[in-house]
């Protein structure tokens, strides 16, 4: 199965810009389905980014983050070819991770 995480990390001098897009329903628990029943909450709670094993960014999310979430940030210290590991866990115990190379 293809990874739920798509990431683009580009080093520009000392600064690495990271853009990540994750496929996830991010159900808030307030939305009803076609039958009028509430769809139970299902959302990513923690999303972590680590560059060469060092944590560079952690997101704590609630259900108010949009479906198929997108996030962008930049950090110092990464360079071309470095490993960037991205991992998430959701409220139902689901998780996924991917290791990308900084371009």
């Amino acid at each position: 199965m293809a990874s739920s995480i798509r990431v683009r990390a580009t080093a520009n001098g000392d600064i690495t810009e990271v853009q990540a897009l994750i496929q996830h329903p991010m159900d808030s628990g307030f939305v009803k389905d076609a039958k009028g029943e509430l769809i139970p909450p299902h959302f990513i709670q923690e999303l972590k980014f680590a560059c060469n094993g060092k944590e560079v960014f952690v997101a704590d999310w609630g259900p108010a983050v949009s479906k198929d979430p997108y996030v962008k940030f930049s950090f110092k210290g990464g360079k071309k070819g470095d490993d960037l590991k991205i991992s998430w866990t959701d409220n139902k115990g689901g998780s996924d991770e991917i290791t990308a190379k900084i371009a």
Binding site: I15, K54, E55, V56, F57, V58, A59, D60, W61, G62, A64, V65, P69, Y70, V71, K72, F73, S74, F75, K76, G77
Partner: peptide
């Protein structure tokens, strides 16, 4: 959403 920013990460976020 709440984001933790370690040393060396820019205080700039889009979501």
């Amino acid at each position: 959403a709440s984001y933790r920013i370690p040393d060396g990460t820019m205080p700039s976020i889009a979501n």
